[in-house]
């Protein structure tokens, strides 16, 4: 029981983590913790086969599937935990507590009688025993699950498959479309500006600078913008800091030639 009492708090905390994490990835990791712990509980209760299956199928396959989908869908935003349906959270908690309370206090105590243990059932080995049951008494259910699995595979394929309803657009079509948009809405037909142009860094999270020194929104990836990790593009502060440093070093070192016609202009605007 020592192992149980060690694992149980971890599982409960991890389960709470599944529910409470802001980020779906964290939830998935917490769930993996619960599942591995569960596998250990299975092992503890003379279910070595399920222990292996739990690790391989659940933690190995299903949780990975979750993570893949998370990546597909995009980890664009952390979930807001603000409840939008009035009273939903209260109802959920009250119901959950009532349910859990009833189960823990009544159903869990309802089991009376000695614990038999699986020593006899597992006499030939757990896998052997399970196989006997599966291929004798539960053989029809087993066959049905095979049908279910095939159906699930087909269903997943159907759902994930996207039918092409129009001919593939060629380079030429795309170019024509761009020019059309330019003609109608004045949308720039060329490439989007690359990040980091005229900026201090050329990393992808630094937006390009426009001639007036402001940042260009469209130069960074939408995913980064949604995540809020795009760096502040305002450069004025950096420039003035650099200039002060240069001045402090004295005119003979690193002297910046002022532009000939408009010395008062800053940020080198006329260079663009």
């Amino acid at each position: 029981m020592t192992a149980f009492w060690l694992l149980a708090p971890i599982m409960v905390v991890a389960a709470l983590g599944v529910v409470l994490s802001r980020k779906a990835v964290h939830s998935a990791l917490c769930l993996a913790v619960v599942m591995i712990s569960l596998a250990m509980m299975y092992a503890m209760q003379d279910a070595p086969f399920l222990f292996a299956v739990q690790i391989i199928v659940y933690t190995g396959a299903i949780m990975m599937l979750f993570l893949f989908v998370l990546m597909l869908v995009g980890v664009d935003k952390t979930d807001s935990l603000v409840e939008t349906i009035k009273g939903q959270r209260l109802v959920a908690i009250v119901l959950g507590l009532l349910f859990g309370g009833v189960l823990v206090t009544v159903v869990a105590q309802a089991f009376v009688g000695p614990v038999v243990g699986l020593g006899e059932a597992n006499a030939d080995g757990n896998v052997h025993g399970l196989a006997k049951l599966l291929f004798n008494r539960y053989v029809f259910a087993f066959e049905a699950t095979s049908a279910l699995l095939i159906t699930a595979v087909l269903g997943a394929m159907v759902l994930a498959h996207r039918e092409r309803l129009e001919p593939r657009r060629t380079q030429r079509d795309l170019a024509l479309e761009r020019m059309q948009r330019y003609a109608e809405h004045g949308e720039h037909p060329g490439n989007l500006p690359t990040p980091g142009v005229y900026a201090r860094h050329n990393a992808v999270d630094v937006p390009a600078l426009l001639p007036d020194g402001s940042t260009s929104e469209i130069s960074t990836s939408k995913t980064l913008r949604d995540r809020g990790v795009v760096r502040d593009g305002a450069f004025a502060g950096d420039v003035s800091v650099t200039m002060r440093r240069l001045e402090a070093d004295g005119p003979e070192r690193g002297r910046v030639e002022p532009p000939p016609s408009t010395p008062a202009r800053h940020d080198g605007e006329e260079d663009l």
């Binding site: 349906i85 939903q88 109802v91 959920a92 119901l95 959950g96 009532l98 349910f99 009833v102 189960l103």
Partner: peptide, 19 residues
């Protein structure tokens, strides 16, 4: 309400009543 979570709550409540 049209929100699936409300319906889920109702189903859950029903299950509780059943228990």
């Amino acid at each position: 309400t049209g929100f699936v979570r409300t319906y889920a709550a109702e189903i859950f409540g029903g299950a509780l009543v059943l228990v």
